[in-house]
Nucleic acid binder design. Structure first.
Length: 332
DNA sequence: CTTCCACCGGAACCGTGGGAAA
DNA sequence: TTTCCCACGGTTCCGGTGGAAG
């Protein structure tokens, strides 16, 4: 036995204390405070590389405040809820209005009205994770106009909001800019130790392994934790008593997570691109058509193909070089 | 320099499917 | 049950773009 409880090592785990993010925590608290006090709500743009604790810290702060006060807090991943309507619906759902808000058949304005009603009694913190995945930024405007809402926009690109129009931009001009930097080696060791205490039985992880993992994960806590998890699982399944002091072989991020919500055409596209190395648009489309007909799939039109490819590049699954007619695609 | 070509991507449009109201 | 309303994904339409060809 090595693993006590796998959940603290998983990405989705929300710890009850956050280490090495004190200044970020207080910045976030300051952002939300006016809402608690009933004055003008403030917003924040939270950015920084993956695995630096953006999501974790935001949830920790806003869910913590929600527990102590009448404030409510909603977390939304914009990859899963990317349209204005989907975000609105998700908010209402988590406010407990799902039964009265039906999935289809009501105009967005109705949903907003419904929300306004719910917000008479309490303020709301809306976390929009991966905010650049929104297909329609007008939801930001909707939320700003509700007044009793603090928006926390999270992204790993600091240019994530470059697409918003001036009407929204000017309303957001006073928002907090909270930047998360990569963890240092020692900070990562602290985090690993903290989670290992919760998830792994005592004295199972050699301290030197912690250091190796911290050094090789490039300041990315997510990568470090998944490495530790893999090492622990491997040792346990091969019946060892302790985890060997050796870096586990682990791909950056499990492929499945990234390709989860792709359709079958996009998966085919990825296969073709991976196989060919680098490929131009026209050939890629031809290959897709022949591959898909071989697989007994419907033919898709070239415009749809372009939509799929650009979705793939938005998700950093393919790399685009060149522009216009000379665009070439390669595996990321 | 002008025209052509192949592709890009915005926008309007359409079919589908789910839920609510009649 | 039928009718209506709506979001969503995909298609159609079309103007834009920039190197190649004339």
């Amino acid at each position: 036995m090595i693993i006590r409880d796998p959940t603290p090592l998983r990405e989705s785990f929300l710890p009850n204390r956050i280490i090495h993010r004190d200044s970020h925590i207080s910045a976030l608290r300051e952002t939300i405070r006016p809402l608690v006090e009933g004055t003008q709500a403030r917003h924040a743009f939270i950015h920084g590389p993956t695995g630096t604790g953006k999501t974790c810290t935001s949830r920790y702060v806003s869910e913590g405040i929600a527990e102590e006060t009448s404030l409510q807090s909603v977390y939304i991943n914009c990859w899963e809820h990317s349209s204005r309507y989907a975000v609105l619906f998700r908010i209402l759902e988590s406010l407990g209005s799902a039964l009265t808000a039906h999935r289809k058949g009501s105009a967005p304005d109705e949903l907003i009205l419904m929300m306004r009603k719910r917000l008479e009694s309490s303020g709301l913190v809306v976390m929009l994770d991966e905010v650049d995945a929104l297909t329609d930024f007008s939801i930001l405007y909707d939320l700003i106009l509700l007044e009793r809402v603090s928006i926390l926009m999270i992204s790993n690109r600091d240019t994530a909001l470059s697409g918003v129009d001036d009407r929204i931009r000017s309303r957001l001009s006073s928002m907090e800019n909270i930047h998360f930097t990569r963890y240092s080696r020692d900070e990562l060791i602290d985090i690993l130790r903290d989670r290992a205490d919760l998830g792994i039985l005592p004295d199972k992880v050699p301290p030197t392994l912690m250091r190796r993992i911290a050094e090789s994960s490039g300041g990315d806590a997510r990568a470090a934790l998944s490495m530790l998890m893999v090492a622990a699982e491997k040792a346990e399944s091969s019946g060892l008593e302790t985890i060997p002091d050796k870096l586990p072989e682990v791909g950056k991020i499990p492929e499945k997570d990234l390709t989860e919500h792709l359709n079958e055409y996009q998966r085919l596209l990825l296969e073709i691109i991976k196989e060919r190395g680098e490929i131009d648009s026209a050939t890629l489309y031809k290959e897709l058509i022949s591959a898909s007909s071989r697989a007994g799939m419907e033919k898709i039109v070239d415009r749809t193909f372009r939509n799929y490819v650009s979705a793939l590049s938005d998700r950093n699954l393919v790399k685009i070089s060149g522009t216009g007619r000379w665009t070439r695609y390669s595996a990321q």
